[in-house]
């Protein structure tokens, strides 16, 4: 079972590095969205610092969302998804490997890029670890919940906007907690409790979402 997991992870890695543009696109999108805000609201550093937690989180959320549309698409089109569904290995494990790969190459990359953009927005250096922790705990939830939507819409021709419609409301708790943690840190409040809440949310999603993704894929393949 774990063998399938690692095999799939390696396969995803290979596929990913064959198309490096797709690896970079969410990162570029993330940076551009962040750069849009000072242009829209003005370069005043105090204002930018106040809204930076929200900005970083919304931009990360949108970047993950955009990358999700293609999560299962190529596997669906070349028929490998059908093979997954009929294969004797548990679909949940394969789904988990797929989502983990997505998180490694999209979510984790965003997390590593975020300190740079946070500094550009004027977030004080001592709060960077909080930002990193909140994104580190939050982005897996974004990938997992997004994969539920991607699984349900993979068979549809124009799934993109529908995917956003399905998933964005479900992202709200992560967004609130994630940006709230950084805002609490900015206000000088203790953050450990909120980070623990985020961690429990991550664990909850990690245990439940794969079953929903697997069920969604079964429906999309059967159609």
């Amino acid at each position: 079972m774990s063998n399938v997991f690692t095999l799939l992870l390696v396969r995803e890695t290979r596929l990913m590095f064959r198309r490096p543009a797709e690896l970079v696109n969410p990162l570029v999108f993330f940076s551009i969205v962040i750069a849009l805000f000072p242009l829209a609201v003005g370069p005043e550093s105090q204002l930018l610092q106040t809204i930076s937690p929200g900005l970083l989180w919304v931009a990360a959320l949108l970047a993950v969302l955009l990358s999700l549309d293609g999560l299962f698409r190529s596997d669906f089109e070349d028929g490998s998804l059908e093979q997954w569904v009929v294969s004797p290995h548990p679909l949940v494990v394969m789904v988990l490997a797929k989502v983990l790969a997505h998180w490694l190459y999209c979510g984790l990359a965003l997390v590593m890029l975020s300190p740079l953009l946070a500094l550009m927005l004027g977030l004080p250096t001592q709060h960077i670890p909080t930002l990193l922790l909140s994104l580190l705990l939050g982005t897996p939830v974004l990938s997992l919940l997004g994969a539920v939507g991607a699984a349900l819409t993979v068979g549809l021709k124009r799934g993109g906007i529908l995917l956003a419609l399905l998933i964005l409301p479900l992202y709200i708790p992560v967004l609130i907690l994630g940006s709230g943690v950084i805002q609490a840190a900015l206000q000088g409040l203790p953050t450990t409790g909120y980070l623990l809440w985020m961690a429990s949310l991550t664990m909850l999603t990690l245990t439940l979402a794969p079953f929903a993704i697997a069920a969604g894929l079964r429906i999309s393949v059967a159609e």
């Binding site: 409301p169 609130i176 709230g180 949310l201």
Partner: peptide, 20 residues
């Protein structure tokens, strides 16, 4: 499936919005 995922989310949404 979407309704079930949503219903699990509703209490979480409620608490996070209250906290926010």
């Amino acid at each position: 499936i979407l309704a079930i995922v949503g219903v699990v989310n509703i209490p979480i949404i409620k608490y996070s919005v209250d906290w926010w």
